[in-house]
Amino acid sequence: MDAPPTADRKIIHVDMDAFYASVEQRDDPALRGLPIAVGGGGPRGVVATCSYEARAFGVRSAMPGARARRLCPGLIFVPPRFDVYRAVSGQVREIFSRFTDMIQPLSLDEAYLDVTVNKRGIASATKIAQEIRQMIRAETGLTASAGVSYNKLIAKLASDQNKPDGLCVVRPSEGAAFIAAMPVRRIHGVGPVTARRMKELGIETGADLRDRDMPFLAGHFGSAADYYYRASRGQDDRPVRERQERKSVSVEDTFFDDLTQQDALVAEIDRIAASLWTRIEKAGAWGRTVVLKVKFADFRIITRSRSFATPVRSQQLLAQAGRELLIAQLPLRMGARLLGLGVHNLEGDEAEADAGDQLALGL
């Protein structure tokens, strides 16, 4: 059956609230109401996620553990229990499957659902989202937020609007205005570096982005121009994919100042490896090949890789491989603008993340 026109789709994005931290607070009553972080609190540790009590101090996911402790001296670090998180994620996914088989997981704690045609014949996607959230609370003791809209781009943005434990519905007639009021840094596909470039060009909101024509966007953003042009108008034709094998998992970072010194370069690779390991464990995606990416000041890119006989299953081995790949390139021909680390040849069991009805009416 052909997919319905984009404006006629009913898409839900469900995002568990502070998932790992909420599971820990659920299972240990002594942690409830306290600022906690799941992850490593050591010098090279990274916050995988944190409770809303910790977020009030400015602690955020992917933040180095040392910085998190400085922001919140009373922060309690809890080691991750990924087997438990995967089990709870399975419970949540089973709830989704009661309504539709068109489910695209992004990670253990979030997924897109296409409920345009659903198993229960419910006309309202809003009602389906409400029922899903109620079932999650009743069966797992956890809360989830949901965004309901006519495409993936807006549904994902909407799920973050009323967190925690919230619901936001954006109908087709409201999509353009919803994006217009959105800071561009929140739009999917606009990373921190691009957001800074946009700000320098006077583009800070979706409305600012919409006001730039295609020649202007193409001149400044190249091949991404078409996506930004359409996104600023609330347009997104991407379908919800039921299954898609993950090819790789990676993390990269662009620096304000180009890095040249070995100590600084190695410190960044260690930090990136810690962040990558959190992502690998979250996805359950273990790889045999470690890949280093370096982008130089002149934007030239090189990649180097090392393969192992079996999947890399320790953060220490991942970081060591990254350091060795990097050190083999030293001294660099010029400063590094970006460093990245990834794993390929995966043997995981999670679905790929994205590296978007009744007319105005039935949502």
Rank of each mutant, 00 (worst) to 15 (best):
M1E: 12
E245D: 14
Q91F: 03
V343Q: 07
R230N: 10
L332R: 07
L34V: 10
L157D: 09
Q134M: 11
A353N: 14
A283L: 13
V117M: 08
M102F: 06
E347S: 09
L106F: 02
Q320Y: 04
L346N: 08
A48G: 15
V190Y: 08
A195K: 05
L339Y: 10
S89M: 01
G58R: 01
E24A: 13
K127H: 12
A138T: 13
E200W: 01
I12F: 03
M198T: 03
A62H: 10
A264F: 07
M63G: 06
Q358G: 09
R196L: 00
I36W: 00
S22H: 04
D213R: 06
I272P: 13
L75Q: 08
K247M: 11
G40W: 02
P239A: 14
L153P: 02
A37R: 00
V312E: 12
A125F: 04
K119I: 04
K293W: 00
G42W: 00
V266L: 05
F96A: 07
K293M: 11
A125W: 02
V184R: 04
A155C: 02
E324A: 03
E350P: 07
V148I: 09
C72I: 12
T254E: 09
A30S: 15
R67F: 12
D211G: 13
R44D: 14
Q235D: 07
G175F: 05
V92L: 02
T260Y: 10
E242M: 07
I132A: 13
A129P: 10
L325H: 08
G340L: 00
V294T: 08
S145Y: 04
V170R: 01
T116S: 12
V240E: 06
E268V: 12
D211A: 15
F77H: 01
A125Y: 13
V251E: 13
K119F: 05
S145F: 06
R26S: 07
L317A: 14
M16I: 09
A285Y: 00
S97N: 06
R246Q: 13
A56M: 03
I203M: 06
D354H: 09
I187H: 09
E245Q: 13
L142S: 09
A54K: 01
E245G: 15
G45Q: 04
A285Q: 08
A285C: 09
D208Q: 03
G219C: 12
D114H: 03
Q235W: 02
L363E: 04
K152D: 13
V23P: 08
D213T: 05
L359C: 06
V291P: 05
D357M: 10
T254N: 14
R212K: 13
P311L: 00
D211H: 04
R197W: 06
D109V: 10
N345L: 14
